[in-house]
Amino acid sequence: MSIARFWRETPRRYNLGGSKCTMCGTVYFPPRAVCPTCAHHRESIGKMEPFQLSGDGEVFSYTTVHEPAEGFEMQVPYVLALVRTVEGPVLTGQVVDLAPEDVRIGLKVRATFRKLREEGKAGVIHYGYKFAPAEDLPNRPPGRPRGAVGAPAGSESDRAAA
């Protein structure tokens, strides 16, 4: 992937910047130029506002991947999940800082900023969000994970964005 192709999505992949439809209030990630669900589809053009996700959510479904995507060869096996955020949007991302056998549907997680993948030995390193447990697990101490991204739900920056 070219540097520009990854770089242009940095605000979303680093900071969980989504969008909110001011016509119906639905939140989207990644941001949308037009509201897919709104009855006012056409009228929502130009009415989508930036919206900051908190990074809090829970595991909606998951898998442990043994045949990796390109650039993830060194991380096998890794846990991939659909995470339903507290604001509504579902995100696809790895769940880290836990043993694969500890992941389950309903597990509370929080977004954390990590290295995603490397393009070969001399290639570009891509960074972005992954998720870490936000509740007690047998094999890992609780607490806010290192490198947490996004604002806590209902914080100043959240309201400012909305």
């Binding site: 909606f60 998951y62 898998t63 991939l80 659909l82 991302g93 790895q94 549907i105 993948r117």
Partner: peptide
Amino acid sequence: HEWEVVFGGTLPALWAMIARRHMH
């Protein structure tokens, strides 16, 4: 590619998550 594969998704991994949810 931008929102699934870049984050470690593969076609079987995505179908696996559909399967896990269907089982649940």
